[in-house]
Design a protein around this nucleic acid. Sequence first.
DNA 1: AGGATATGTGACCTTTTGGTCACCTGTCAA
DNA 2: TTGACAGGTGACCAAAAGGTCACATATCCT
Lengths: 106, 106
Amino acid sequence: MDDEDRVFKALADPTRRFLLDRLFERDGRTLSELESELEMTRFGVMKHLRVLEDAGLVVTRRQGREKLHFLNPVPIRQIHNRWIDKYTERQVSALLELKDELEELA
Amino acid sequence: MDDEDRVFKALADPTRRFLLDRLFERDGRTLSELESELEMTRFGVMKHLRVLEDAGLVVTRRQGREKLHFLNPVPIRQIHNRWIDKYTERQVSALLELKDELEELA
DNA sequence: AGGATATGTGACCTTTTGGTCACCTGTCAA
DNA sequence: TTGACAGGTGACCAAAAGGTCACATATCCT
């Protein structure tokens, strides 16, 4: 499995996206901390974090007996660049901003 | 399966990403045209296109007995916005532009 | 009309993936 | 230094996904 494939496979699972959401909110969390927010055993969560790390979506640092997890946004941006060129980017982001404003009014 | 999940699941397969690449290059292609570029039966390709359409990554229009396929970039941009805020976007896109320039020199 | 062309459906099989468990290693602190 | 705590490995099972085929419908063109 190549690097690119790992990123997309990693994003395909809802639990892993939830983990990225938690890290987007605040990074530097430990396995135990992330586990406490999920209805799953530690082993399941560990496996998911491993997949995210192998994909480069999460980077880690050991601190004593703890392992801290950080979100890496670079692969996400690369997905974006693959199918959205500069010109289309302006159109699409304008469209989504408009959509957000309309939803705020409703 | 909710709408968001469908998008990520759709992107998880290399054949489907290849199809998006072809449509990014040029849209409005038919099933037969896309099939001719893949080592797979028509049924396999059709199944993949169906998944992409259900996810909203591809939109279609019937024209006689043909079905034309178009790339929709909106869901891709939404993935981007989920984990990259305005501030981070500037940093990451600058980093990737630098990376591209360096690779051009090498 | 009728054959060729373009797309569609449901059943089926194989491979991959998500999740759990028994068991193990490294680190902290009294 | 010993017990509690944080993280790690490999085997295992059930569920989901990728791919093919027999069969079917709609459209075009002569």
